[in-house]
Write a protein that binds this DNA or RNA. Structure first.
Lengths: 138, 138
DNA sequence: GCTTGACCTTCCAATGATGGCAAGGTTTAG
DNA sequence: CTAAACCTTGCCATCATTGGAAGGTCAAGC
């Protein structure tokens, strides 16, 4: 299998497969005489693992760890759970931050008439004019 | 006021003030004889506006638009509302995506014993082994 | 056998927002 | 006069990903 097939079979772009190779996330691929990279089913399996982990928002550093745990038959599930839990905390923090912003923005938008007149609580708030707060973007 | 004072007065780092200048988000600052950038209260006001907009997650492109609307006394509030609404939709989509991931991860973590044994539903799921799904990371 | 198009190779650059460092000029207080 | 604190420009790094350019390889059709 060449890199193009590996890409469509795994859902990881050829570009990224090469990138993962140079950054050491995956080992160097075998090469045909032509110099083309060759991939087998095991490689595809690994690439799919990586794609799923990326979709789940793990960083490449975390994925590196996950891959080594995956390949270690002796791994304690504890380590995987810790890594995943750390990532989950991260996600929850980011979600909370975004929600805070979204709520504030929702309030401001609700109070903006949205017509042709210039008066606008959204701009007023961004400008720091607190006379009509309602969901501060601070 | 020099750039350092402008930075601490506005909450925007000196680095970013220069960056905003080179990218055209703010006009080129006046210069003292020495070559130092000079800032007045209006500049600070603008920088604070930018900082709040960034905190609210607006991109620099959106902030550019917001700034021009802010400075246009004739703007229709409609335009501001549309821009903010588009950003809010963005935020809500990102929140929803993150929540989907967080939920799936929560399930998987809940089902991982986290002990010293190697068996782990988190890795199984990432590997594509659906025998014990519960929150797919797909 | 040759051409064409699809595929592959490497390398370099850009994204967006920010931080960091380096080498050098300026200002200000002591 | 000197030292500290500030400023200048410029370049590099982050993170994951995409894009392009220039060139080599392969398979199919004529």
């Amino acid at each position: 299998m060449n890199i193009g097939q590996a890409a469509s079979a795994s859902g990881v772009s050829a570009k990224m497969i090469r990138h993962y190779e140079t950054t050491g996330l995956i080992p160097k691929a075998a090469r045909a005489y032509s110099g083309y990279r060759r991939y087998d089913e095991r490689d595809i399996h690994t690439l799919r693992f990586i794609r799923r982990a990326r979709t789940a928002g793990f960083s490449t550093a975390q994925i590196k760890k996950l891959l080594s745990l995956w390949q270690d038959r002796q791994r304690p599930a504890r380590e995987v759970k810790e890594l995943a839990s750390a990532h989950l905390s991260d996600l929850q923090m980011r979600i909370a931050e975004l929600q805070t912003i979204a709520h504030a923005l929702t309030q401001l938008i609700a109070h903006c008439h949205g017509g042709e007149r210039p008066q606008c609580p959204i701009l007023d708030n961004l400008a720091g004019d607190d006379s009509a707060p309602r969901g501060e973007l601070r």
